[in-house]
């Protein structure tokens, strides 16, 4: 055992230098040169002010904006220093109550929508920072957003469709739309009268 101690200590130090400092250092250098936008968080600037990140969801409560999914990150949701899901199990009373409250609110906010509520609209995401909603969820909110902006619902729906992401390679994941990008596009193209 004892004659293995020296190589053990030396290899620990060497690996710390090579895989713990040089490797991440080189990767950081390359990423900052070739993909600086992504490497720094895909941040979005409007009129020289940071308003968010492409990839990180944020709260929207006003009727003229599309609303994101419920979030369990931090106390008020969408706390990007405290990513988390609800971790409530399927037989949790707390989950049931929360979904019920969300469902009632969703119906109240979107009185023109009558079908079953899209699954993502009432459930908290795994990260609490989900930047996207399903296309069905966006469509269900389109009437409300259009009314609040004094626009035609088909115009808003058209905007949703133009910003929608389809499945990657036509196969992977799910169709969806980025809430922040969508709302920024609304402000740009359909400013509230």
């Amino acid at each position: 055992m004892l004659n293995q101690l020296a190589p053990a200590l030396r290899l620990t130090i060497l690996m710390t230098i090579v895989t713990g400092l040089i490797y991440p250092g080189v990767v950081t250098g390359l990423c900052q040169v070739f993909f600086p936008h992504q490497a720094n968080g895909s941040l979005i600037t409007v009129n020289d002010k940071l308003v968010g990140s492409d990839l990180i969801g944020q709260n929207f409560h006003k009727p003229e904006y599309f609303h994101p999914r419920p979030s369990a990150a931090g106390n008020d949701g969408y706390d990007a220093t405290a990513s988390s899901g609800s971790n409530l199990g399927p037989t949790s009373q707390k989950l049931f109550d929360r979904v019920k409250a969300s469902a009632d609110e969703y119906r109240k906010e979107n009185p023109d929508f009558h079908g079953p509520i899209p699954a993502d609209a009432l459930t908290a995401s795994a990260s609490g920072l989900d930047p996207e909603i399903s296309l069905a969820n966006a469509t269900a909110q389109a009437d409300r957003v259009a009314q609040a902006r004094g626009k035609d619902a088909t115009e808003v729906q058209h905007l949703v469709d133009s910003l929608a992401s389809r499945r990657d390679l036509g196969l992977l994941g799910e169709a969806r739309v980025n809430v922040l990008k969508l709302n920024l596009a609304l402000d740009r193209e359909m400013a509230k009268k």
């Binding site: 989950l95 899209p118 459930t123 995401s125 996207e132 399903s134």
Partner: peptide, 11 residues
């Protein structure tokens, strides 16, 4: 247009 199923805790 939406995934259905159990979306609690999923992205």
């Amino acid at each position: 247009l939406q995934p259905g199923g159990n979306m609690e805790g999923k992205e």
